[in-house]
Simulated assay, not measured.
Amino acid sequence: MKVTVTPKVLEWFKKEIVLEPGQGIRFFGKVYGSTQVHEGFSVGMSVDLPERVMFQETIDGVLFFIDKNDDWFFRGYDVVVDYDEELHEPTYIFSEEA
């Protein structure tokens, strides 16, 4: 599993989300919506403290992570987190793991 955060959405996160020391942006699977590979589930995000991390990366001082509880949602996929210019919010693009 690989998660790529584009520079454009990184700037959005830095402008829109306030993080206290030790906190990061957690991506998780949630009921409702869909992705290219999930029907009835979409990506949620929250400000959280990493505990049982299966993926983490700090980019320009911002921690992004996925908890082991969300292995079911992300296992076998690479995800690009990008910025949707029309909706002015993050968008998530899934592809099979390379």
Rank of each mutant, 00 (worst) to 15 (best):
K2M: 14
V3F: 08
V3R: 02
T4Q: 10
V5N: 00
V5A: 04
V5C: 03
V5E: 01
T6A: 08
T6N: 05
P7S: 14
P7W: 10
P7C: 12
K8Q: 14
K8P: 01
K8F: 11
V9E: 07
L10S: 05
L10G: 01
W12D: 04
W12C: 02
W12E: 06
K14D: 02
K14S: 03
E16Y: 11
I17K: 08
I17W: 05
V18C: 13
L19D: 03
E20G: 03
P21T: 11
P21Y: 11
G22M: 10
G22K: 08
Q23H: 06
G24D: 02
G24M: 05
G24T: 04
G24R: 02
I25T: 02
I25Q: 06
R26H: 03
R26F: 04
R26Y: 03
F28Y: 15
F28P: 01
F28R: 04
G29H: 11
K30G: 07
V31S: 12
Y32I: 09
G33C: 06
S34G: 08
T35P: 01
T35D: 09
T35V: 12
Q36A: 15
Q36F: 08
V37T: 07
H38I: 10
E39P: 01
G40E: 11
G40W: 10
F41G: 03
F41W: 12
S42G: 15
G44D: 04
M45I: 11
V47G: 06
D48N: 14
L49G: 05
P50A: 14
P50K: 12
E51V: 13
E51D: 13
E51S: 10
V53W: 06
M54C: 10
M54E: 12
M54A: 09
E57M: 07
E57C: 06
T58L: 05
I59N: 02
I59L: 14
D60H: 10
D60V: 07
V62A: 10
V62K: 03
L63A: 08
L63F: 07
F64R: 02
F64W: 03
F64P: 00
F64A: 03
F64I: 07
F65E: 01
F65S: 00
D67I: 03
D67G: 03
D67A: 12
K68L: 12
K68S: 13
K68A: 12
N69I: 14
N69E: 13
D70E: 15
D70T: 03
D71V: 06
W72C: 08
W72D: 11
W72E: 11
W72N: 09
W72A: 13
F73V: 01
F73M: 04
R75A: 13
R75S: 15
R75P: 00
G76W: 09
D78A: 08
V79W: 02
V80G: 03
V81P: 00
D82E: 11
D82T: 10
Y83V: 09
Y83M: 13
Y83E: 05
Y83W: 14
D84I: 07
E86H: 09
H88E: 15
E89N: 13
E89R: 15
E89Q: 15
P90L: 12
P90Q: 13
T91G: 06
Y92A: 04
Y92D: 03
I93W: 04
I93G: 01
I93A: 09
F94W: 07
F94S: 01
F94H: 04
F94A: 04
E97I: 08
E97Q: 13
